[in-house]
Amino acid sequence: MTGTWKVSLPCTRAEARILSEDQLFISSSDSTPTIVASEIDPKHPDAWIIDVYCQAEPDPELIDNLLQLSPSAAKSGVQPIVEMLQDEDWVTLSQQGLEPLRAGRFHVHTSSDEPSDNPRLASICIDAGQAFGTGHHETTMGCLQSLDRLKRTGHRFRNIADVGTGTGLLAFAAHHLWQSAKIIASDIDPVAVTVTGENARRNAIALGNGHGHIRLVQSNGLDHPALKQRAPYDLIIANILAGPLVALAPQIAGASRAGTVLILAGLLTGQKAEVVRAYVREGFRLRYAQVDNEWPCLTLIKTRKYGWIRKAHRTKSPLASDYFGEC
């Protein structure tokens, strides 16, 4: 039966983060579900709910995936609630519960809310949709706060890569902070690339190759020729999962130079040591770790020269050691 369907299941905060990674929902349906995780009650920070919006009736495989990825619900015997929505704006419905948030100098909101009237804040409009990254997860919050911290300390970047961009939020934040920089944003998911383009237009951010523009590419890691051509970068952002972060360490190191700053997120506290080891082997050093609940956001610096045989661009930007101290 076609139409718009909603599947709801209570879960913990940690499960919500995993469940909101929509690539985990491999089902027989032809449409990609829209997944929204939200807190039920601020007084109970571990009480969350996941809502999955589908363009067709959810199949048993999707329901089974939900239950397997939410052991707390399975343990308590809670079953997903499946309902068909009436002819309403289901995208608007999916935004309900996503309150505007403040992270550093950023005000992140959906199209259902107004931008901030505070001139000191940069408003970014991101709707929940078929890509991860509305800013409401600790990983994205940590990245936004880390970017803001770099700006507050006077650091400047001219060549930036956002690997696994999702909705484009972090690329947009970097654009607000360093408006003359060349930024390239990539994702393995073509839907995410499309969504990022739509969000860029919604936020009046120019797409293209020049300074002050963001270029979008679909890429598995940094395999795309455009990503290789622009290297080395002086700032790389990667808010993905721990496994891909470890696997991408050699590629990211190859796209770096001495002084490159790296922001990594999407890992759990228990995965931090493994991720840090992978990048230490590639010549990085951990300089700052911000932890929100069990979600670390790591800031590292490249201390040795690796990578493609290509002369680094000379810029007037301060070395990362000016910010982080001597390596």
Results as ranks from 00 to 15, higher is better:
H313D: 08
R257P: 01
S317D: 15
L267T: 08
V52P: 01
E21K: 12
T110S: 15
A200R: 14
V82I: 15
G221R: 07
R201L: 13
G210T: 02
R281A: 09
L85N: 11
L85Y: 10
D234M: 09
H107V: 06
A47W: 06
L9Y: 03
P296W: 00
A258Y: 00
A122W: 00
G325S: 10
L144W: 06
Q145P: 00
I63N: 02
D127A: 05
T153R: 09
A200N: 12
P100G: 12
S20W: 10
V217S: 10
V52N: 01
P250S: 02
D234R: 08
A312T: 10
K311G: 03
T165I: 03
D30F: 11
V82H: 07
P115N: 04
T32M: 12
L222S: 01
Q95S: 13
G208N: 05
G243L: 02
D30I: 11
S72L: 03
A265C: 04
V193E: 03
S31G: 15
P318V: 03
G243P: 01
A173T: 09
E15D: 10
V261C: 09
H313W: 08
L69C: 05
R13T: 11
E326F: 10
E15N: 07
I18Q: 11
Q79G: 07
I183V: 15
E282P: 00
H224K: 08
R285W: 00
E39K: 13
P10W: 11
M1Y: 11
R285N: 03
F132S: 04
I81M: 12
A181V: 07
G77W: 13
T299N: 01
A185E: 07
R17E: 15
G210C: 06
D189R: 05
V195M: 14
T194V: 10
M84H: 14
A231E: 06
E294A: 04
T269M: 00
P33I: 05
C125Q: 04
P115S: 08
K75D: 14
A320I: 01
L101C: 12
S70E: 04
I301N: 02
K305N: 00
C11E: 07
I160S: 11
F324L: 02
A312Q: 06
T4K: 13
I183H: 08
Y323K: 05
G266F: 07
F106C: 10
E198G: 12
K182N: 14
D127F: 03
V276R: 01
E138A: 14
R13H: 15
T196H: 10
P244F: 05
Y233R: 10
T92Q: 15
T315C: 05
I309H: 05
A14G: 02
D117Y: 03
T165Q: 06
P250A: 07
K43T: 13
A181Y: 14
A278P: 01
K302G: 07
C125T: 02
E57N: 02
D46N: 15
A200Y: 12
L85R: 09
L268S: 02
K302A: 09
S38L: 12
A258F: 02
S29W: 12
L19K: 04
G168I: 07
H137N: 05
I252A: 00
H107I: 07
H175T: 13
Q271W: 03
Q86H: 13
S116Y: 06
L66N: 11
G197F: 14
L121S: 00
